[in-house]
């Protein structure tokens, strides 16, 4: 069943069309990858899906409801959680606290209840901290629970952001270049982690440059080039697709 369906979405910045009439579907329980050369519009597309940018045309529907006009924090509450290409952690807060912030939409304590530390608040805090411990173990970052995010190694920062996104109880997880800056061992850990999340019933859409990871974990791939979708299909077919090879070789020819 299609969980996310993107129809004819476009975004222009001045004279540049960053995303040009892109359509695709993400099926429930799968890992789908979004690839393409630099400047293909991948991050813009992510921003359109999560409410950080407004599309100029097209529509996005998630689990049957339209996402048009929803603001970022509302999109999260519907069940789409994201990470960022440049990690957006709360540097002064510990690993556990970072993930606790992700519990924000599912918790209830307001200013009044928090100020008085009502019994319901304490119970909620306890439950939330327990779940955070579970999430940190799931992504393999539990040893950094009490370390300020600023002092956490780069690879773990990405895992913390994934744990924070998972804390919002999403149905769809959008990961923006989770393997960027990771070494081989860390990338393998990440791949295991992504499969584990998928097996927990969470659908994943991932933007990634690391072809090894993409071919390894994804069931379907969408290829963007200069804002347009140029190919879509399973990894083995994408690897042989003439338009895709052209897009990537073309880029290398320019940047070599």
């Amino acid at each position: 069943m299609s969980l996310l369906s993107v129809r004819g979405i476009s975004k222009r910045f001045g004279g540049l069309t960053a995303v040009d009439d892109v359509s695709f579907e993400v099926f429930e329980g799968t890992i789908k990858a979004l690839i393409g050369p630099n400047g293909a519009g991948k991050s813009t597309l992510f921003n359109l899906l999560t409410g950080f940018e407004r599309p100029d045309a097209g529509s996005v529907s998630f689990g049957g409801t339209a996402l048009g006009g929803k603001r970022p924090h509302e999109v999260v509450r519907v069940g789409l959680a994201r990470t960022f290409q440049n990690t957006q952690l709360f540097e002064e807060m510990t690993g556990a606290e970072n993930v606790l912030v992700g519990m924000h939409p599912t918790m209830r304590t307001g200013f009044m209840a928090g100020a008085l530390r009502l019994p319901s608040t304490r119970a909620e805090e306890r439950d939330a901290r327990e779940r955070v411990g579970h999430l940190l173990r799931l992504v393999g970052a539990d040893q950094y629970a009490d370390t300020p995010a600023a002092d956490v190694p780069h690879g773990v920062r990405r895992l913390l952001e994934i744990a924070r996104a998972l804390a919002t109880s999403p149905r769809l997880l959008l990961l923006d270049e989770p393997a960027a800056g990771l070494n081989n061992a860390e990338t393998r850990t990440l791949a295991t982690c992504l499969r584990r999340i998928r097996d927990d019933g969470i659908t994943i859409l991932v933007v990634e440059h690391d072809m090894g990871l993409v071919m390894d974990v994804s069931e379907e791939i969408v290829v963007l080039d200069r804002g347009r979708k140029i190919a879509e299909g399973p990894p083995l077919l994408i690897q042989k697709d003439a338009a895709v090879i052209e897009a990537y070789l073309g880029e290398e020819a320019v940047y070599a």
Binding site: F52, R77, T83, F90, E92, V101
Partner: peptide
């Protein structure tokens, strides 16, 4: 925590549903 998150990274806070 939401306040400290806002201070740390507004984008991160929004993405956490704040």
């Amino acid at each position: 925590r939401a306040m400290r998150a806002l201070h740390g990274s507004e984008l991160g806070a929004l993405a956490s549903g704040v």
